[in-house]
Design a protein around this nucleic acid. Structure first.
Lengths: 146, 146
DNA sequence: TTGCGTGCAAAGGTTTTGCATGGCA
DNA sequence: TGCCATGCAAAACCTTTGCACGCAA
């Protein structure tokens, strides 16, 4: 693809700068909108959506779909790690809604296995493990013992 | 949880009956609404949404998130497999929509690992692996080579 | 000067919710 | 009779889009 011309704009710069300050965290487009609104640095929300999407295309930002109805999560990856970056996996607690992201060697191995033995190439950006976090397991047991 | 009382209603019966006729296919809530509207058997859309959600909780129906912006997909699983001893895992191909069921020892091991090392109890009925099946991987490569 | 990027407001589509009514047990 | 389920319409929600204007190159 011929990578059409890209203007350098204040909005894009500020967006990237903000994203890099929350590297490693998941944020939604709404979070970003709110952040800039609170800072007084106005960036229109359509710009934020459009730039985020562009950054995802460029590989600078990852986009995760947690589930159909909650807003998409974005995470700054950075330009350097762009190719072959290691990504993290996501566990969503159905009890409290908490999202846990983990870097996990075993997961990587299992993904290999899926690929080799089952021919399935799993997409870590889309796959989310649902279940219960430690806290909610405890609470659940307490509830059962009542 | 004490599993609150559940009334047996015409709407719920008809919904389950319809779902079982399209077992193995994925349909959206909108499809269901449309189906009943066309059949003249009126079921309100809020009922459909509410019942679908309930069936998902009961494990009779699986819910898939294709991507953040398209409607959620549902698929009838059936009551038997629900309380069953061995469950299978689901891989959903994002290319062709195919759903792959697999019994997999490695998955079981990974689940153990999640539990022991990360304290997360994954729910196999809820969790779906998204990715690309073999066929679609091949097609994707062909497309790239164009 | 060219045309990409921005911002606003409005539209888009799916899903949820409030509330009165209906129907199961 | 007591609640749960239903249905309608409206709301909520995130995201996209149309269009005019601004600004980078």
């Amino acid at each position: 693809m011929p990578a059409s011309v890209q203007y350098k704009t204040r909005q894009k710069d500020e967006l990237i700068r903000y994203l890099s300050t929350v590297q490693g965290k998941h944020i939604t487009a709404g979070d970003v909108v709110k952040h800039f609104r609170e800072q007084g640095e106005q960036i229109g929300q359509s710009t934020i959506y459009r730039q985020l999407e562009r950054l995802v295309d460029e590989g600078i930002v990852s986009k995760y779909t947690i589930d159909a109805n909650s807003p998409a999560c974005f995470e700054y990856i950075g330009a350097e790690s762009h190719q072959g970056a290691e990504h993290c996996y996501h566990c969503k607690c159905e009890g409290c809604g908490k999202l846990i992201h983990l870097h996990c060697e075993e997961m990587e191995e299992f993904r290999e296995h899926l690929k080799k033995e089952h021919g399935f190439r799993m997409d870590p950006f889309r796959t989310v493990f649902y279940g219960l976090c430690e806290d909610c397991q405890r609470k659940g047991n307490e509830a059962q013992n009542k």
